[in-house]
């Protein structure tokens, strides 16, 4: 089994939890990293900014709701706590007509699948599941577990496996939204995953076109052939130019309290899976993806997100350390490894 980096053997930022192995990091004489210093003034204005985004979101929903043919929003629904809570919020607070979309990568925890069915029923939400054929899933995930095919900056924020998987999710939900004239695409990203600027963002066709081209380019030609149809066809960029939806991730501007979220979710029948790692409540491939990333890069692929949450005082530094520097269960890693034949 590969190396595990114990935080007691690493120098980590005294304010957040970024380690000395994080590329380009610098510490001052107090042991505080350059990212914490830069974030200080941004975080000082965070609550004011969140309120502005919330008001903007309320207005946008008011102006848009019930105008689309069938659904107001397509929700990228993994069954994890964040996407379930986001869906609950969109349903209960905003009464949106939701189409929940689950991407089955063959590693969705059975407990998460139970949560998906249960919560979609309770929230009276239409739900579709998109299942990648196993030969394609096997090729894509064994490759990305073994190699880094994406650009180095991308890998600062997520593992190769996760980048591939979420890339398909983003593409397929966008494609569905365009085809069905759905004005919003919702994600359950935590406030640490992306800056608030991403929380309400109209998709720009030219930007998506360039990002998609870069992503496709990363795959070797034998895989490119089998995944091409998951991406937006080139004529969509012109054909649906006026129909590009907003991406929304409301958890960026609503109060994010993990314990409270789990409590509220329990009330609608959601249960915390016990078969996943500390950073996922739905995926059985994540632990292996994290492990391989740590072996190759010397830092955890979730450390950027969790460090952001520590800086924003959403979770304590101690909780952050537990999430990132706890040893993962070997059984979860071995399960994915064996499944992929690695």
């Amino acid at each position: 089994m590969g190396k595990f980096v114990e935080h007691s053997k690493l120098k980590i930022c005294e304010r957040c939890i970024l380690p000395e192995t994080f590329p380009g990091i610098k510490f001052d004489e107090d042991g505080v990293c350059n990212h914490c210093k830069r974030a200080k003034s941004i975080n000082a204005k965070a609550s004011e900014k969140k309120e502005k985004y919330r008001q903007r979101f309320d207005k946008l929903i008011k102006d848009t709701i019930n105008k689309a043919p069938v659904y107001d929003v397509i929700m990228a629904y993994s069954g994890g706590k964040d996407s379930t809570y986001t869906m609950k919020l969109l349903k209960e607070r905003y009464a949106l007509r939701i189409l929940a979309f689950t991407f089955d990568n063959h590693f969705v925890s059975p407990l998460a699948l139970d949560n998906i069915k249960k919560c979609a029923d309770i929230l009276e939400t239409d739900h579709i599941q998109f299942r990648l054929p196993w030969p394609a899933a096997h090729k894509i995930f064994s490759l990305t577990a073994k190699e880094d095919i994406f650009s180095a900056p991308t890998l600062l924020r997520a593992s190769s496996v996760c980048t591939a998987c979420i890339g398909f999710v983003k593409s397929i939900v966008l494609k569905t939204a365009l085809e069905m004239s759905i004005p919003f695409v919702a994600f359950g990203w935590s406030p640490g995953q992306a800056p608030i600027q991403a929380a309400i963002m109209k998709n720009n066709p030219d930007l998506i076109f360039k990002a998609q081209r870069a992503q496709k380019k990363a795959f070797p030609s034998e895989i490119k052939k089998i995944i091409n149809h998951y991406f937006l066809p080139e004529n969509y960029f012109e054909k649906f130019k006026e129909r590009f939806p907003y991406n929304i991730h409301p958890l960026a501007f609503f109060k994010y309290d993990e314990k409270q979220i789990i409590k509220e979710l329990y009330n609608i029948g959601w249960k915390e899976p016990t078969d996943t790692d500390t950073n996922s409540s739905n995926c059985l491939l994540n632990a292996l993806a994290n492990q391989r990333h740590i072996e190759r890069h010397g830092f955890h692929p979730y450390v950027w997100e969790i460090a952001n949450m520590v800086r924003q005082d959403i979770i304590s530094r101690e909780e952050g350390i537990n999430k990132i520097y706890s040893k993962q269960k070997e059984s979860i890693i071995n399960f994915a490894q064996e499944r992929l034949g690695l």
Partner: peptide, 15 residues
Amino acid sequence: LEDGVIDSTGILELV
């Protein structure tokens, strides 16, 4: 974007 310096989320960090 095309040369892999920043991805689409990174663009928003830049913003």
